[in-house]
Simulated assay, not measured.
Amino acid sequence: MPAIDVNHPLRVALAGFGQAGRCHAETWATMPGAIITGVYSLRPDVEATDIANVCGPHVPVYSDYERMLAESGCDFVSICTLHDTHAAEAIAAAKHGKHFIVEKPICLTPEDLLAVRRAVDSSGVRAFVGFQEFHYGQLQATIEAVDKGWLGRVHLAEIDYYNGIGPWVPQHWWARTRKIGRSSMLFCGCHPLMMLMLVMKGVKVAEVEAFATKTAAPDFADFEYPTTQVNLIRFADGRLGKVTSCLDSLNPYYWRNTLIGSEGTLIDTKIMSRVMLPGLDTKGWQQLATRSINDAGTVTPDMFRPMFERILANLRHDEPMPYSGFNAAFEMHRVLFACDEAARTGRPVSLP
């Protein structure tokens, strides 16, 4: 499918107006070169006024997703609905010839992952996955430090996600269910696993092993699946990774990176490198002065703008799409489903 005409604005439709959907809407509404042409709402009677305030009073609000695709005149869809509908809505967008971004996860089953893959491939649309965290601040700096060779060849990467998704979190009512939240990895662990895949720069995964448990704290008793999962990942070239997804930690949102390479080490925002810059102390830490990922517990529209700017550049000028491309996210989901199988069966899982 050809790139979007640069002489016309990108016509964006939005599916869902929850926390992520509102951030998408507020960002697209202020993006030069984009206009919002329709919004699909799960609760149009409740959300119509709020949608009008963000998107404009002229923007139609639909209670039917297919009708929005057919009537809104959109080129592009931001899919920000509940997780159990992502796959069907992504497939429908592709069949209508609409480019799209789907908030993570893409889907909840391996079968749906393949179905979305087929729909994207057969339609020729451009698909993106909403990993906005990697387009700014600490995590972008971490990925680019690896890309620049400051750590040399990274042979061990440990990415840990700690959060407390209790009743005080707005998403708790659905995140706790097996139907929509499904697993610790699908609800939150997809973030650190994607980070691991990015710092390992596309190296294939050979085998995974995983273990799951849950807290005794009554705050998280409503969860229908194990809330903590630790995943051990062996890459095809022998490198190792560990990903922790913990939804039941009693602390503010905390993300921890530990990368060990042949030329240096990076832990959170501290880096020591033998090759980074001449004149630096190669036996002491340097501090990366950058926006910490640990302010991401509250999601705000400014976190999405760099990703959306890259999406526009990709659609209009065929520029590369780092960090949020569909192919990279597809591979991450394959590994994620293998990790969940390993945790469920108690046996290592090899990836074909």
Rank of each mutant, 00 (worst) to 15 (best):
R153H: 10
H99E: 04
E319I: 00
E207A: 02
D112K: 00
L266N: 05
M1V: 13
C23T: 04
K148V: 10
P320T: 01
L277C: 13
R239L: 03
M194Y: 00
H96G: 10
P252T: 03
S123T: 07
T37V: 14
H24M: 11
F235G: 00
A329H: 04
K98H: 13
W168N: 15
G16P: 05
A210L: 15
L240S: 07
A145T: 12
N327A: 12
I293N: 00
A94H: 04
D5S: 09
T244E: 09
P301C: 12
L288A: 14
A175M: 06
D160N: 13
K95W: 07
P44N: 07
T282W: 08
P110N: 12
W285V: 13
Q229E: 15
L14V: 11
R178L: 15
L113R: 03
D84F: 00
P301N: 11
C80P: 07
I51D: 04
T300A: 11
D222R: 12
A221I: 07
M197Q: 00
V54E: 01
G16K: 04
T345W: 01
V77R: 03
I51R: 02
T85M: 10
V102S: 08
D219S: 07
C190H: 14
V39G: 04
E89C: 04
M197K: 03
S183E: 05
V208R: 01
Y225C: 06
R291E: 08
L232C: 09
A296G: 11
L113Y: 05
A70R: 06
G264V: 03
V275T: 15
G16F: 01
P60E: 03
A13R: 02
P44E: 02
E103A: 02
V208T: 10
S122I: 04
G279N: 12
N257K: 08
P320Q: 02
F235L: 10
Q229W: 10
R43N: 15
A236N: 04
I4N: 06
G137W: 03
A145N: 12
P60G: 06
V120I: 11
E144V: 07
G297M: 04
L156T: 08
T81Y: 03
R176V: 02
A88M: 04
I36Y: 03
C80S: 15
A115W: 05
T228A: 09
G241D: 02
I143F: 14
Q286D: 14
E341D: 06
H191R: 06
M197Y: 00
R316G: 11
A127G: 07
T227A: 02
P352M: 12
D50F: 13
F76K: 08
V146N: 08
M332I: 09
P44T: 13
L336E: 01
